[in-house]
């Protein structure tokens, strides 16, 4: 599955368009990571646990979007956009959407 966040796929022509496809995940961190993060909050620095967590969530959301696109019969998604919001205390929603298309 080809993905781009521009309107075209450089070097390829778009043949047909299927409309918007999207994927989302809502994830919350677990207590162990929260304790470590609390410690890190004193010293500063990167919170690797959270970086990984959010990275995994995004991968999962992208996977779901790609699944949706394959169901439609598309082989590429263009103009991909992300949006992150915190729906509840400590839980993050990752939403990704784009336009499913077929390219040659």
């Amino acid at each position: 599955m080809i993905m781009t966040n521009i309107e075209t796929v450089p070097g390829k022509a778009i043949i047909s368009c299927f409309g918007v496809v999207s994927g989302s995940t809502v994830r919350t961190k677990h207590a162990g990571r929260d304790i470590m993060a609390g410690l890190k909050n004193i010293f500063g620095g990167e919170l690797r646990g959270y970086t990984e967590l959010l990275g995994e969530s995004r991968d999962e959301a992208i996977r779901r979007m790609q699944q949706q696109a394959s169901q439609l019969g598309a082989n590429a998604i263009v103009n991909v956009r992300f949006s992150t919001s915190s729906v509840a205390a400590g839980a993050a929603e990752i939403y990704v959407y784009g336009t499913a298309v077929t390219v040659e």
Partner: peptide
Amino acid sequence: EDEEAVFKTQFVSANVVISVDY
């Protein structure tokens, strides 16, 4: 760019979480 020269395109992303200190 020259469209003919493009070999492939790939969606790339990365994230980082940085904590404040006290």
